[in-house]
């Protein structure tokens, strides 16, 4: 039954949208290194790109793909295939397509021009974010019949995680400054995969100012080594959790 997952993944890699996404990342990734002579700066620029572009593109593309392949999914459903392997095929295929695009576009230039632990962590972050936001997009798409609404919702999620979340955290900290709230704020940071991904990379660089509030708390609490281990663990959980809900819904819904 893994066979069908592979078929879907192979079919996806031929998809134009994923190709264009990879091309966009490649222009940014390779281009940055070619115009900027200081790789320490380039990695930070690529970090920003990864944190903003990867979640946005993967979640939008994944949502559109899911709705556009409604007929295809139906065709698969009437074959003697388990629903479980169909949804796994879609998730695995989409994620691996995005991860591959990211690795070629951003990962490869990083390894070639700036092979450091920071680069390695950035590659890990981008990979995790690709999987996480594919899962989130499918989570929205499987629970919502209307494509336009789903895209809107996915955009909101992206805005929330990239821009609003840290703002809320900062606001909460100011409001509750008189209380010992570090622990709760720390748990709060776990709730945002984007800041966890950012923390994971920035902890490896000298640019502590870019940590952001959640990152600063994180580093302060765990220190670099333990911090990056825990950050990775959280990202793995973020990668798995949405998919479990996607699977549950896909197995019990009508087509």
């Amino acid at each position: 039954m893994q066979n069908i997952s592979f078929s879907i993944a192979a079919d996806l890699l031929k998809n134009k949208a994923i190709f264009i996404y990879g091309l966009l990342l490649a222009v940014l990734g390779w281009g940055m290194f070619l115009i900027e002579s200081q790789p320490e700066k380039t990695i930070l620029a690529l970090l920003q790109i990864t944190l903003i572009v990867v979640p946005l593109m993967t979640s939008i593309f994944a949502t559109i793909y899911y709705y556009n392949s409604a007929e295809f999914i139906q065709l698969l459903l009437i074959q003697p295939l388990k629903r479980r392997s169909i949804i796994w095929g879609i998730f695995a295929g989409l994620s691996s397509g995005f991860v591959l695009s990211f690795l070629v576009g951003i990962g490869l230039p990083l390894l070639l021009f700036y092979p450091t632990t920071a680069s390695l962590h950035l590659i890990l972050s981008g990979t995790f974010l690709s999987v996480i936001f594919t899962g989130l997009a499918l989570l929205v798409s499987t629970h919502q019949q209307d494509k336009a609404r789903s895209i809107g919702f996915v955009l909101l999620l992206w805005i929330f995680f990239t821009f609003i979340f840290d703002g809320i955290l900062l606001w909460a900290m100011y409001q509750l400054a008189d209380y010992p709230i570090e622990q709760s704020i720390l748990f709060g940071t776990f709730l945002n995969p984007v800041s966890v991904a950012r923390t994971l990379v920035v902890m490896q660089t000298e640019a502590a100012a870019l940590l952001g509030l959640s990152g600063a708390i994180f580093k302060d609490f765990f220190g670099s080594l333990k911090g990056s281990f825990i950050a990775m663990l959280i990202l793995i959980i973020w990668g798995i959790l949405p998919y479990l809900f996607v699977k549950r819904k896909f197995l019990t819904r009508d087509f």
């Binding site: 007929e71 074959q79 388990k82």
Partner: peptide, 22 residues
């Protein structure tokens, strides 16, 4: 109990919709 019973079923849907670009 499982999808294997569909091996002996052929189905022609009401509106034949297929992936457009395939």
């Amino acid at each position: 109990l499982g999808p294997d019973y569909r091996k002996i079923i052929g189905y022609m849907p009401q509106l034949s919709k297929f992936p457009e670009q395939m």
